[in-house]
């Protein structure tokens, strides 16, 4: 799949932002006034910024309101509703914490639940895709949720939780890579089933339908950059998981916390780039490609 920078930025940044909102919503930290303002501003900048980045991916963002209508069947529609509901509920909750120094606990917990729901619906957009076997796994929502909570704990200064959740997310990441590398073969979709010609003999793509590129090849059959997949996995794992945990284990200093956040975001961006670049869509089989 084509690793669109807008989608990579959206899923990484908004995942972090909504993760931070979960911790803020349940009162960890339960700060008020200007400190709470800074926390909420960071959460909104990440979550809202991610949402704006994702709008650049649309051909017609001016029709975006229609995306709130199809929650019965569409995970993307559910995500849009969850995201806007989270931002609205958390805004009301933030007013209490920042300006009135009061903690409206039920509202905070509702906001936290909606924020988790947003991350879950985002992950299900990918996990539902039968056409991309690497994504179609319960490990996909598990990884997204754990990453969001772990990264959120890192931003919220919940060191003890971050030290549990980030290693857990790292284990999930390794498991996700391990099962992803086997998923396409396990899906049973091959050139033989794609063409129905397997009963005659072995099928080879002889001539493509077009000599140039097209939307399908650009969007779904992105093979450039898989060359460095192993190196990028190492970079993603070290920067996204190992280094932040190591920095948190050092004696506490704000500069280590900041470095841990920067390292984590860089690592997760690399991991998210691979999430798309390594994902093989079955339509590639019609072109004899993966």
């Amino acid at each position: 799949m084509h690793p669109a920078p807008s989608i990579i930025a959206f899923t990484t940044l908004s995942g972090l932002g909504f993760g931070l909102m979960v911790w803020l919503g349940i009162g960890m930290p339960g700060s008020t006034g200007i400190v709470a303002f800074v926390f909420f501003a960071i959460a909104y900048a990440l979550a809202g910024g991610g949402l704006i980045a994702s709008a650049f991916h649309l051909g017609h963002p001016e029709r975006g309101l229609l995306a709130f209508t199809q929650w019965r069947s569409s995970w993307l529609s559910r995500e849009a509703i969850c995201a806007v509901a989270t931002l609205a509920v958390m805004a009301a909750y933030a007013i209490g914490r920042v300006f009135l120094a009061t903690d409206w606990v039920p509202l905070g917990w509702l906001g936290a639940a909606l924020a988790l729901g947003t991350v879950f619906t985002t992950s299900m957009i990918y996990a539902q895709m039968k056409t991309v076997p690497r994504w179609r796994s319960p490990l996909t929502p598990a990884l997204f949720l754990c990453l969001s909570l772990g990264g959120g704990a890192l931003l919220a200064g919940q060191v003890s939780w971050a030290l549990i959740l980030l290693p857990l997310a790292g284990i999930l990441q390794l498991a996700w890579w391990w099962q992803g590398d086997r998923a396409f073969a396990a899906s049973g979709t091959t050139m033989a089933s794609a063409t129905g010609l397997g009963g005659i003999g072995s099928v080879r793509a002889f001539e493509p339908p077009h000599t140039g590129p097209n939307y399908l090849l650009r969007e779904m059959v992105h093979v450039v950059g898989r060359k460095h997949a192993v190196k990028l996995r190492a970079i993603a794992f070290v920067f996204g998981y190992v280094l932040p945990v190591a920095l948190l284990l050092l004696p506490f200093a704000h500069v280590f916390g900041l470095l841990a956040v920067i390292s984590h975001v860089a690592g997760i961006l690399a991991s998210r780039w691979l999430f798309f670049a390594e994902a093989e869509h079955v339509v590639g089989l019609y072109y004899g490609k993966r």
Binding site: M1, M129, Y215, L216, H281
Partner: peptide, 19 residues
């Protein structure tokens, strides 16, 4: 009503939809 998100093209295994 199409916002051009491209998700339907991802969901189609046959490459039948093109933006």
């Amino acid at each position: 009503a199409c916002i051009g998100c491209g998700l339907c093209a991802w969901a189609c295994p046959y490459g039948a939809r093109e933006m």
